Amino acid sequence: MKQRKIPMRKDIVTGEMVPKKELVRVVRTTEGTVELDPTNRANGRGAYISLDVEIAKKAKAKKTFDRVFETKLEDSFYDDLIAYVDHQQARKELFGDAK
């Protein structure tokens, strides 16, 4: 049986290529708002970050998404991102690869 190709995306904090399932997408919508995109289908410019709390904290410290999306973001966005990544990381450890 032929193996399926695994889609890879670049983590904007570390610069590593990672399987898409191990990342969360953050999108700047056409209205100019920046938000998490758990469905990976929202319209707009997307950027990916690993499901790792330490990497999310690095993104907050370096204001990575401010630079990538060329906008000023509130600290509450980064706090929400860290909470979401923490939740998804715990869920992955609890249930394995099933989403």
Rank of each mutant, 00 (worst) to 15 (best):
T64I: 10
A47G: 10
K62P: 05
L36I: 13
I55A: 13
A47D: 02
S50P: 06
T64R: 09
T39S: 15
N43G: 09
D66N: 14
Y48L: 09
Y48N: 05
T33Y: 06
T39Q: 10
E70S: 01
E35Y: 03
N40G: 04
E31Q: 07
K63F: 08
I55P: 09
N40Q: 13
K58R: 15
A56S: 13
K62S: 14
G32P: 13
E35V: 08
I49V: 15
G44S: 11
E74F: 04
G46F: 06
K62W: 03
T64Q: 12
P38R: 14
K57P: 00
A59V: 04
K62G: 07
I55Y: 10
D79Q: 10
E54Y: 00
E70M: 05
A47Q: 08
I55V: 15
A42L: 15
A59S: 09
F69D: 06
E35G: 06
L73A: 07
V34R: 05
R45E: 11
Y78G: 06
L73W: 04
A47T: 10
L81R: 01
D52P: 04
S50I: 08
N43R: 15
L51K: 12
Y48P: 11
L36K: 02
L81K: 01
P38E: 09
T33Q: 01
V34C: 02
I82L: 05
I55G: 14
V34T: 11
R45Y: 11
K62Q: 14
E31I: 00
P38L: 09
K57R: 15
F69R: 12
K63I: 03
F77K: 06
E31K: 03
V68G: 02
R41H: 12
V34H: 03
E35M: 10
K58M: 15
Y78R: 06
D79K: 10
F77V: 00
F69P: 01
G46A: 07
G46H: 03
K62T: 14
P38N: 13
G44D: 12
I49E: 05
T71K: 13
L36N: 05
D79N: 15
S50G: 05
R67L: 11
A59I: 04
R67G: 13
L73I: 11
Y78W: 00
K60P: 07
G46C: 03
R41W: 09
V34E: 01
G44Y: 04
F65E: 10
A42Q: 15
V34P: 12
E35A: 05
K57Q: 15
T64D: 11
A47K: 12
G44R: 03
A61K: 13
E54P: 07
V53Y: 12
D79H: 09
D37R: 13
E74W: 04
D52K: 09
K60I: 12
Y78A: 01
V53F: 07
F69Y: 12
E31C: 00
A47N: 08
D79E: 14
L73F: 05
P38F: 10
A61Q: 10
E54V: 06
F65V: 10
R41D: 10
A56E: 13
T64E: 15
I82G: 00
V68K: 07
S76Y: 00
R45W: 04
I49R: 03
S76F: 01
K58H: 09
L36C: 08
A56D: 08
K63N: 04
N43P: 02
L81Y: 02
